[in-house]
């Protein structure tokens, strides 16, 4: 019988759909009877979901300013125009 520890070890692969069907079936059977694992996997999915909508972490203004200056360079070099 698969345990909660096994479920947590397989959480990432299960989330990504990388488990084969026998493994997936054994996980689903465990989930039918284990509320903690259902919640754990939901938390796991929420964590990944949060990472997907994480706001950008902008660089220093100085870097952006440097790049904008470079972008203003000759169009044939930068953009092929």
């Amino acid at each position: 019988m698969i345990s909660c520890k096994d479920i947590s070890a397989k959480a990432s692969r299960y989330h990504d759909g990388d488990c084969g069907w026998p493994e997936r079936l054994s996980i689903r059977l465990h989930l039918l009877i284990c509320v903690d694992c259902r919640r754990y996997l939901a938390q796991f999915a929420a964590t990944i979901g949060l990472l997907r909508v994480l706001p950008p972490d902008p660089p220093d203004d100085a870097l952006v300013a440097d790049l904008l200056r470079h972008f203003d360079g000759p169009a044939d070099r930068v953009r092929g125009g």
Partner: peptide
């Protein structure tokens, strides 16, 4: 590993986050 007992089950109850959508968390 500390979260599991000797049989491999969670020692403590796992909380429900179902109301926490990723957008709300973000």
């Amino acid at each position: 590993p500390d979260r599991f007992d000797r049989t491999g089950h969670f020692r403590e109850k796992i909380a429900e986050w179902d109301t926490m959508s990723p957008e709300r968390l973000a």
